[in-house]
Design a protein around this nucleic acid. Structure first.
Length: 269
DNA sequence: CGCCAGGTATGAT
DNA sequence: ATCATACATGGC
């Protein structure tokens, strides 16, 4: 949820990773990281952050081969658009972004996040701001949350910030729990149900086997496995994990995007 | 103008 | 346990 992909001749990215705005360009064989010289930084530190954020040390091709063997349609999807990555996001940023996503549309989610960063974040370079932490959200007040158009999720956001600041839920500690316990811990937070918790487990804690089920993934699964049509989302999540295994989370992302773009319906016939 | 949006919390069977 | 409904706000 931090930044956007701008596909041109040369693939490039501009976004805020951690405390720094970065401009990334793909040269031949390596990734160039550009920073705003006006903002203090440790270049090696930032580079390490970028490596982690995009999980560059992982063998993406091997993961894709394993997933492709699980279902012919999934294999077809991957061959059409290989290279889709699960990011390794900051837990707080991921958590709150997905709280804002509930029953909301993507353009509105993006605008709300941008507004919160603009109003509450710190300068990150290139005119960008950092993602505001729990203290900033806790102290900002209802006026700011309304100005950012959080809607009914503003209450959840504030209440969640409170539980993080108070230490009632420790996001660092969640990282060392086994997945089911980590999920329960996240679901103590207001505005966090099974789906949001699973997204945080996948995108921030890198539990790659976790299979978040939203309406789109549910539809996609019903195409591949018609018997899941009548199942509640929680059972579909179970099925996804059972069928796709240790990288089910990446399978979920492929299914999500192909379902959303309308490509999947043509491929299953 | 009416329906839907990367769901969740709540109250009723 | 399972099910329906409200929820702020904006996109289409």
């Amino acid at each position: 949820m931090a930044g956007g992909l701008a596909a041109e001749r040369k693939l490039s990215y501009c976004g805020v990773i951690g405390d720094h705005a970065v401009i990334l360009t793909q040269e031949d064989g390596f990734l160039q990281v550009r920073l705003d010289p006006a903002v203090g930084h440790n270049a090696n530190r930032v580079a390490a952050g970028v490596r982690k954020y995009f999980a560059l040390d992982e063998d993406q091709a091997a993961i894709e081969r394993e997933l492709a063997s699980k279902h012919p349609v999934l294999g077809e999807i991957i061959s059409r658009r290989p290279g889709l990555k699960i990011l390794c996001q900051d837990p707080w940023e991921c958590l709150t972004s997905f709280i804002l996503s509930a029953h909301n549309n993507i353009p509105a989610i993006e605008r709300t996040i941008e507004a919160l960063c603009e109003m509450l974040g710190n300068p990150a370079g290139f005119g960008r701001k950092t993602y505001p932490g729990p203290y900033a959200v806790l102290n900002c007040g209802e006026t700011v949350l309304n100005a950012a158009r959080c809607g009914f999720r503003g209450r959840y956001l504030a209440a969640t910030a409170k539980k993080i600041v108070s230490g009632e839920v420790d996001l660092k500690g969640v990282g060392s729990l086994p997945t089911p316990a980590a999920r329960s811990e996240l679901m103590k937070l207001p505005g966090v149900g099974r789906k949001v918790a699973d997204c945080v487990l996948l995108f921030a804690y890198r539990r790659l086997e976790v299979f978040p089920v939203d309406v789109w993934v549910k539809r996609a699964m019903a195409r591949l496995y018609p018997e899941t049509n009548s199942m509640p989302p929680e059972r579909v999540a179970e099925e996804g994990e059972r069928r796709f295994g240790r990288y089910a989370g990446l399978a979920q992302e492929y299914l999500y995007w192909f379902e959303r773009t309308g490509s999947l319906v043509k491929m299953v016939h």
